[in-house]
């Protein structure tokens, strides 16, 4: 899985029948693992109900198809979870582990190594951006 931010939505009038009813979100990976397919964006189906501006966990490959309940769906990325909080131990592995500028999760909490577990309060997701006018956007 990877961490990403929903930055937009996709609409497609002509699409595979197996994509009927699916909402397609445009996701910018914040922390990306895929040596084979370096890319700065992903289109994901969204069975969970994420909104633009939220940070999400994206699942790739076969499990992404499972999320839709049918492994024959022509899909390779789906939203698996909406992130409430991300806690990173500030000293874990040194400064090189920091997120790239502009690519830190909204709810990132840097916890100093000495901090107790009482500091585990998630900052929460930002309020979602206003929905694009023109309906819910699910494929029909």
């Amino acid at each position: 899985m990877i961490l990403g931010r929903v930055i937009g939505q996709c609409w497609a009038t002509r699409h595979s029948p197996r994509l009927d009813g699916q909402k397609l979100l445009l996701v910018q990976p914040l922390a990306w693992y895929d040596p084979d397919h370096p890319s700065d964006h992903l289109v994901c189906v969204d069975p969970v109900g994420a909104e633009v501006g939220q940070d999400v966990v994206v699942c790739m490959g076969l499990p992404a198809r499972l999320a839709l309940g049918d492994t024959r769906t022509p899909v390779e990325a789906s939203i698996a979870a909406i992130v409430d909080g991300v806690e990173v131990l500030r000293d874990a592995g040194g400064p090189a582990f920091a997120f790239a500028p502009g690519h830190a999760p909204e709810s990132l909490l840097n916890v100093p190594e000495s901090a107790s577990s009482s500091a585990r309060v998630s900052a929460g997701n930002p309020s979602p951006a206003p929905a694009r006018s023109g309906g819910a956007g699910a494929l029909t």
Binding site: G49, V57, A81, V86
Partner: peptide
């Protein structure tokens, strides 16, 4: 890899 942090999510797909 090295564990650098934890991710919390309340709203998850049921299979997760």
């Amino acid at each position: 890899g090295r564990v650098m942090g934890e991710v919390w999510a309340t709203k998850k797909a049921p299979r997760l």
